[in-house]
């Protein structure tokens, strides 16, 4: 992929992000922040790629940490967001959940 193509993709993603997000109601800002936090966990893909091509002990150890951190970001991010959004259910529910 050429550099210009990569740049195009990045710039368009930024613009889509601005457009889509500008319309979220304030009530959902915390879950939104949490969801976007989970989405940048996509760096896990980068972690897998560098750990997959690692050929020295340093690269293996640092890559291992990158993948572990990325996994925590993704899993923790989506779980936490889901728990917040669960609170927004309309119907009354049993206490303590």
């Amino acid at each position: 992929m050429t550099l210009l193509a990569l740049f195009t993709v990045f710039v368009l993603a930024v613009f889509v992000g601005l457009e889509v997000i500008a319309k979220v109601p304030q009530t959902l800002h915390t879950p939104l922040m949490s969801a976007t936090n989970a989405i940048h966990g996509v760096i896990l893909v980068g972690g897998i790629l560098v750990l997959g091509s690692a050929d020295s002990l340093a690269a293996h150890l640092l890559g291992f940490a990158a993948v572990a951190f990325g996994t925590m970001n993704v899993l923790g991010g989506f779980i936490v967001t889901d728990r917040m959004l669960e609170m927004f259910r309309k119907k009354p529910r049993s206490k303590g959940g």
Partner: peptide, 17 residues
């Protein structure tokens, strides 16, 4: 890494934040 998943996911979050 010439990776579109990172470009798009990162770009979206950079803008939203």
């Amino acid at each position: 890494l010439a990776n579109t998943a990172l470009l798009i996911g990162g770009g979206l979050v950079g803008a939203s934040g």
